[in-house]
Design a protein around this nucleic acid. Structure first.
Length: 458
RNA sequence: UCCGCAGUAGCUCAGCCGGUAGAGCAGGCGGCUGUUAACCGCCGGGUCGGGGGUUCGAGUCCCUCCUGCGGAGCCA
């Protein structure tokens, strides 16, 4: 079906004859001798006004051109007689592609709550807000690949199914082909498809590290699964994660990359999604554009965990949870630092080793590790990463300390036995980045079909 | 999973000390106008989340379950 996208029609400066557009009707307004259709095809936040002569199309057809119906229209782009738009499409031919019964079509030409829209996730992209969020999400996704590949990173497709239950990043979903009645007994998975218990991945990091010891700079961008019973506006059971991994790289290079990466993503959406961001700034979060510009223009604060604890203790604020060296920072602490104290993104480093993962490189002080978390206003932690421990003896000693068996990690330890290099990487929760870039406050509203406890609809 | 709040028309909500349910928007019909959050008039629309209890009488009080939201934990 030959057509011109509405974004392109709206970008025209001159009248034109014989244009074909397709889209969904957002609203219709009737005059006595004229009707106006606003149609949207998802290529832009903005609608195209189509002027219809009721006599020419007929009352029967006109009556069925209701909110939600899909149409194809052929007409001439002419200067508008009305005030709201520069050009409009005066049609001589309107074809109803698919009607939408106004009695039962759930979307009205009025504002709906996000909770209601979540119950009709298959229709919500037809709203202004979700259309904008999905376009921004798409640009961010593109910008992720653009950033890494322009820097020579090789994209890695790490496994979705994994048999190592040692990734340690959270509760895992079991993958099985066994019927439920065969899941009893001491080791039912010995008879299963993989001959052992398999899971959905919680992180591609360890696999990416293997690739980085050959290709030097790699990244993953794929689905990730956590079976935690998390019921919050910041967690999903299925989400997308970006994990770069670099050989010949220390914690400072890692922080530099994280900051450049964030700024690249923000710059791209500011540049390519101006209409959508202006809409979101007006209706969803009035501080959105200011926050994004601030992110782009400011240097991220870099701070040791120990200094952060001092700042929080000196802040005089009564936190719900007291701040104490050796404890992980709470959401309220992170937000105080990035929102109140500094007012820009903050990268925290040198965390106590007790609260971080086994693979993080132990610092010379022996009590902290080369971890880094990027904290941003409103979201909190958006990136978590570290320099990895590349010293075989130090890592195995640390694993012994934590009571981790070496055998399941033997392939990972091989990376340190053969040509080990200083290396580092981080993980970014893609949906958290979409939240940051759109001002949306619930992570379930920045992914098309959210999966979370009790919900796998659509 | 824990704490708190909520569930009333298609949507967003009001409903006081218990006395048999209301508004705006949406929808239908009619009118008006190159309209644009269109406007004016009329009309239809409800197992008050489910179950149980107290009471002469429950949307309202009590118990319980379900669902949602906010916060927390876990994390990305």
């Amino acid at each position: 079906m030959k057509r011109e996208k509405i974004v392109s029609v709206l970008a025209r400066t001159e009248p034109a004859r014989g244009l074909t557009v397709c889209g969904w009707i957002r609203t219709r307004r009737d005059g006595k001798d004229v009707s106006f259709l606003e149609i949207n095809d998802g290529s832009s936040l903005k609608n195209l006004q189509i002027v219809v002569d009721p006599g020419a199309v007929g009352q029967d057809l006109l009556r069925r051109l209701t909110t939600g119906a899909s149409v194809r229209a052929v007409g001439d782009l002419v200067p508008s007689l009305g005030a709201g738009q520069r050009l409009e499409l005066r049609t001589r031919e309107v074809e109803l592609l698919g009607a939408a019964d106004p009695e039962s079509y759930p979307l009205q030409k009025k504002r709906h709550g996000f909770e209601f829209l979540r119950t009709i996730a298959h229709l919500r992209p037809r709203t202004n807000t979700f259309g904008a969020v999905m376009r921004v999400r798409g640009e961010l996704s593109f910008a992720v690949h653009e950033f890494f590949q322009s820097r020579g990173f090789v994209p890695m497709h790490t496994p979705i199914i994994t048999a190592s239950d040692c990734e340690g990043a959270g509760e895992m979903f079991t993958v099985t082909s066994l019927p439920p009645d065969r899941l009893a007994g001491p080791d039912p998975f010995a008879e299963d498809f993989f001959g052992k218990r398999a899971y959905l991945t919680v992180s591609g990091q360890l696999n990416a590290e293997a690739a980085a010891t050959a290709l030097a700079e790699v990244y993953t961008f794929g689905p990730t699964f956590r079976a935690e019973n998390s019921n919050t506006a910041r967690h999903l059971a299925e989400f997308w994660m970006i994990e770069p991994e670099m050989a010949f790289c220390d914690i400072h290079d890692d922080m530099d990359l994280a900051e450049a990466f964030m700024k690249h993503l923000v710059a791209r959406v500011l540049e390519r999604c101006a209409d959508d961001l202006a809409f979101l700034d007006q209706w969803v979060d009035k501080t959105l554009l200011a926050t994004l510009r601030n992110t782009l223009e400011s240097d991220f604060v870099r701070l040791d965990y120990t200094e952060a604890v001092e700042i929080l203790k000196r802040s005089g604020r009564a936190f719900e949870f007291p701040v104490e060296w050796g404890h992980d920072l709470q959401s309220e602490h992170e937000r105080h630092l990035t929102e109140q104290h500094f007012g820009r993104p903050v990268i925290l480093t040198a965390y106590p080793k007790e609260i971080k993962s086994f693979y993080m490189r132990v610092n010379d002080d022996g009590r902290t590790v080369a971890a880094m978390d990027v904290l941003v206003p409103r979201i909190g932690e958006i990136i978590g990463g570290s320099q990895r421990e590349e010293r075989y003896d130090v890592l195995t000693a640390r694993m012994a300390e934590l009571g981790l068996p070496l055998e399941p990690y033997s392939w990972y330890l091989d990376l340190l036995r053969f040509g080990s290099v200083p290396h580092a990487g981080f993980g970014m929760g893609f949906e958290r980045m979409v939240m940051f870039a759109t001002g949306m406050t619930n992570i379930r509203d920045v992914i098309p079909f959210p999966r979370y406890p009790g919900h796998a609809e659509f």
